[in-house]
Design a protein around this nucleic acid. Structure first.
Lengths: 334, 334
DNA sequence: TAAAGTTATGTAAACGTTTACGTTTATGCA
DNA sequence: TGCATAAACGTAAACGTTTACATAACTTTA
């Protein structure tokens, strides 16, 4: 069943009466080989059931064809499906270029994150796409000699390619829509304001209010841990101050908010309107269906992967920043 | 910023006045080295900012410390969060053993799947954990010389380790619970009956019915594509035949079912009771909260990873089959 | 017909580790 | 003292590719 000895390019060469160079060139199509010889080589490869050793190839060619994606993606509790969609986008383009994707979970914690970066080492990946969990950390110190593309979030002093979402514009639009419907007491729920994304969303919220001549009431603004429970709790404490609308800047927290409102039989949008971040299938089956901000998650991944491949091909090209637009999907919750 | 030349173990050795062997042994702790020498080596590594080349290591040691997980996990449309939880479980144990996880998506299609297996090659991974999309395919032909652990599903003639869920027992229990509540017309919705899982679930359904002396009405049994839309459609056509309860054997389809019931204002459980597969956060915030079957997804991943690591250590150990129990969580939807 | 290309392939040195052996020096024991 | 053993480390051959350089056999050219 399994050949005890691994058969290599040498065995193939011998079996086909050619040199290893020729075999290699046949495999990679990297120089002209006569049809006749090609045939012999392919025959030999079939006969011996040859499989290329990509590790040896990587060592010699200094390319692993592996891209790592580091984000808070797998943690089971706070499962943020957003990054899974991103991963799907990344994979879709990597696959076309015969690259592999290795997933690392940062748990949204600096320690896990640095640990993962260290584990990735230097030569095992050709590039790193990451959603940094912190803005302040000196990531550069940790990176190996591979290109890095920041996704969704960007550390403060980054000189790297990045692809992000235009959070401010869409958040502003969402809040303006609420204002347009007559809401004046619009609450804001989000995770800790430590990420660029969160900050931008908040900025959009504030700007919409101020442009409408409304004041941002501090008792209507609450930030906490990103989790269903936390969303539940924050909704609970917020409702005491009688908002007529809630803007939730995170989809996991949004579940918590909806959980609370439903449990307490608070009518949406009658008693309180809700608009939340992220369009996922579940947002369509709450009652009522949620008004959401749809981030181009898949496209974010696609773009990041493309930028990464560009960067690999051309290390000296100017740094790119891509800002993708998000979309407000209005449903019955407002 | 970036050293033009990659510094290797040789450079470290020279700088520390020792041999490459000693450096290697210091790094890996694989033979005794005096404290003094260790210090020198560490010093040199720091001075030169040495980073190990894991590719070279893999080539020589014939171990990549990479495990691949192949499942329908990333496809954006039919996002089945189940496998993401599994992946989280896998990762949690791999991480402890300093293994990496590469994710491959099978799209639940044979072609994608075989393509991915081919791409993984032979030497780049130390093992493959997979949820096969088909029962009939001759996977053995595709595999390289690494151990394989089947997860969640098993091809018909497998002689490999596997870790699966006891679907039949829990499905039976769920249907029995419905019967206990007086239901006699219990509909069944699922994906195509081509997977071992689906088959077991169906078997449980049938057995519960027959043991209760109920007949399985064919108009109440419908199988279709696994998607939200499909769930919606199937619910629609099923409702014509006036079931008093619906058993949905897939969480994505369950969303579709709930979507339909809610849109048509069909009261749950008043007009129809619902029990569905998979406990995810969203099942708690539908109205009413869903009664679900909670599969030990994370634990499935954990177990699979453990089995894999065991297998890597001991290729000749007897094949293991692990069958984990699922749990019925009763909520207001029945 | 000799020189100069061309065409198709071969040779062998990397890539950066790990590891089976060897070697040196110090120590114990009779 | 002489020899065996132990303690600490060194030498160099793999691992399986890729690829710069070389070469042999033909063609063309003048």
């Amino acid at each position: 069943m399994s050949d005890s000895k691994n058969i290599s390019i040498k065995d193939v060469a011998k079996h086909a009466n050619v040199s290893t160079a020729t075999v290699s060139h046949v495999i990679n199509g990297t120089r002209f080989v006569s049809e006749e010889t090609k045939r012999k080589v392919h025959q030999a490869m079939d006969d011996l059931n040859y499989r290329i050793n990509s590790v040896a190839r990587s060592l010699r060619s200094r390319k692993s064809h592996v891209i790592a994606f580091l984000a808070p993606i797998l943690a089971s509790e706070t499962s943020n499906y957003f990054f899974m969609s991103v991963a799907a986008g990344i994979q879709s383009v990597l696959k076309q270029h015969r690259y592999h994707l290795v997933l690392s979970d940062s748990h949204e914690e600096e320690e896990y994150e640095t640990d993962e970066i260290r584990m990735l080492g230097s030569q095992m990946i050709d590039g790193l796409i990451m959603a940094p969990s912190s803005r302040g950390l000196d990531y550069e110190r940790l990176f190996g000699d591979y290109p890095v593309v920041y996704l969704d979030r960007v550390p403060s002093d980054s000189e790297r390619d990045c692809v992000v979402v235009d959070n401010k514009t869409v958040s502003k639009e969402a809040v303006q829509t609420l204002i347009g419907k007559g809401h004046k007491r619009i609450a804001y729920i989000s995770g800790p304001n430590t990420l660029t994304t969160t900050e931008e969303r908040f900025a959009g919220y504030l700007e919409a209010l101020s442009e409408a001549g409304l004041e941002a009431a501090s008792e209507l603004i609450s930030m906490g841990e990103v989790s269903l429970n936390s969303g539940y709790k924050l909704a609970e404490t917020l409702m005491v101050h009688e908002p007529t609308a809630i803007f939730v800047s995170d989809n996991v927290m949004a579940m918590g908010v909806m959980f609370y409102l439903q449990e307490k039989q608070i009518h949406v949008p009658g008693q309180v309107a809700v608009v939340a971040y992220d369009e996922f299938q579940w947002t369509r089956i709450t009652s009522p269906p949620l008004t959401v901000i749809e981030q181009p998650a898949f496209e974010l991944g696609v773009k990041a992967a493309e930028v990464m491949l560009d960067r690999i091909d051309n290390a000296d090209a100017p740094v790119q920043e891509h800002r993708l637009n998000a979309k407000l999907i209005v449903r019955q919750s407002i």
